[in-house]
């Protein structure tokens, strides 16, 4: 399955870049430079004053199980996609994301997450991001 892999050796938390990943993402997803709309974020690290670290969805799929409207599904590549037409903006996916990578953005009906489009990969000046593959986990919802 595809996911966005972060090389934390190469990413220095925005100290020597202009947070190109966030800008590229928000422009790609919502045609805005406002990085609040970005699915990939540089967020403060708890207990480390001033330090930032990349936070982005790893496509684990736990949100799919939580979604009451089946708006969230994993596609053939394993990427969790949101169907805006049936999303009711309950934000349970936001509260239940184990990595806090599903975001609710003020002014947006649907929550925001990474769709592994690769825009940030191209934008990162340090080559810290890549679209990678990992084995597909067992489906969380199955007839049982």
């Amino acid at each position: 399955m595809k996911y966005l892999q972060v090389d934390f050796e190469k990413c220095d938390g925005g100290r020597h870049c202009n947070r190109e990943c966030e800008v590229a993402c928000s422009k790609t997803l919502y045609k805005t430079g406002d990085v609040a709309y970005s699915a990939i974020r540089l967020l403060p690290v708890k207990g480390q004053d001033g330090a930032l670290a990349i936070n982005v969805c790893n496509q684990c799929g736990e949100c799919v199980e939580v979604c009451p409207t089946e708006a969230l599904r994993q596609n053939k590549l394993g990427v969790v996609l949101l169907d805006k037409k049936v999303c009711v903006a309950c934000y349970m996916c936001v509260g239940f994301c184990p990595t806090l990578s599903f975001r609710q953005v003020t002014g947006l009906h649907e929550p925001v997450k990474c769709i592994v489009c690769g825009a940030c990969v191209k934008a990162c000046p340090r080559g810290a991001l890549q679209v990678a593959e990992k084995p597909q986990p067992e489906p969380l919802i199955a007839a049982r």
Binding site: E65, C67, P68, C90, Y91, M92, G95, F96, L140
Partner: peptide, 12 residues
């Protein structure tokens, strides 16, 4: 188990 058993949307 594993089904979002809310009796209305948004009930986690």
């Amino acid at each position: 188990q594993g089904i979002p058993d809310g009796c209305w949307y948004g009930c986690s």
